[in-house]
Computed example of a mutant assay.
Amino acid sequence: MSVALNHTIIHSRDNRESAAFLAHVLGLSVGAEAGPFIPVETANGVTLDFATIPAESITPQHYAFLLSEEEFDEAFGKIRASGAAYYADPHGKHPGEINHNDGGRGVYFTDPAGHGMEIITRPYGYQEDGAA
């Protein structure tokens, strides 16, 4: 049996708001409510189940999404259009910038619940074929 991540629960102040925000940025669909969860399924079949909990109970987490160059352009355009702050780094020291790590592009932003979201066009440690 091969092991694959199937789903994870993401705590939010408002599960519908957080699911809709991320789905909009990434060009995904919000699924039908399933009990206390609002699901957003990624292209590789991993479901992000947004659950509403009290705001003081939320511990900010980090979620990174690998996108194509075209998807990055679309998502980054939506982030900018929303007026959300974005950064080239996870610590917010480079506001209004993107990074070019590993030969691609990346940007960090925060979702409505305070989670650190990241979109990248190359996985960490990526090297072109034949590169040393």
Score class of each variant (00 low, 15 high):
Met1Tyr: 10
Ser2Thr: 15
Val3Ser: 13
Leu5Lys: 02
Leu5Ile: 14
Asn6Met: 09
Asn6Glu: 09
His7Ala: 10
His11Phe: 10
Ser12Trp: 04
Arg13Asn: 15
Asp14Pro: 07
Asn15Met: 00
Arg16Ile: 15
Ser18Met: 00
Ala19Asp: 05
Ala19Asn: 11
Phe21Tyr: 15
His24Trp: 09
His24Gln: 08
Leu28Glu: 09
Leu28Val: 10
Leu28Asn: 10
Val30Cys: 09
Val30Pro: 13
Ala34Thr: 15
Pro36Glu: 07
Phe37Leu: 10
Pro39Val: 12
Glu41Cys: 01
Ala43Gln: 15
Ala43Lys: 14
Ala43Ser: 14
Asn44Gln: 13
Asn44Ser: 15
Val46Ser: 05
Val46Leu: 11
Thr47Gly: 01
Thr47Trp: 01
Leu48Arg: 13
Asp49Val: 03
Phe50Thr: 06
Thr52Ile: 06
Pro54Ala: 08
Glu56Met: 03
Pro60Arg: 10
Gln61Glu: 13
His62Leu: 02
Tyr63Asn: 09
Phe65Leu: 06
Glu70Tyr: 01
Phe72Ala: 11
Phe76Gln: 01
Gly77Val: 13
Lys78Pro: 13
Ile79Trp: 01
Arg80Leu: 02
Arg80Thr: 15
Ser82Arg: 04
Ala88Met: 05
Ala88Phe: 07
His91Val: 14
His91Met: 08
Gly92Leu: 08
Gly92Met: 10
Lys93Asp: 06
His94Val: 13
His94Ser: 15
His94Trp: 00
Glu97Ser: 09
Asn99Pro: 11
Asn99Val: 13
Asn99Ser: 11
His100Gln: 14
Asp102Leu: 00
Gly103Ser: 04
Gly103Arg: 07
Gly104Asp: 09
Gly104Arg: 02
Gly104Gln: 09
Arg105Leu: 09
Gly106Tyr: 07
Tyr108Asp: 00
Phe109Ser: 08
Phe109Lys: 00
Asp111Asn: 03
Asp111Ser: 04
Asp111Thr: 11
His115Leu: 07
Met117Ile: 15
Met117Asn: 15
Glu118Ser: 07
Ile119Thr: 11
Thr121Glu: 06
Gly125Asp: 08
Gly125Val: 06
Gln127Glu: 14
Gln127Met: 12
Glu128Phe: 07
Ala132Tyr: 07
Ala132Pro: 00
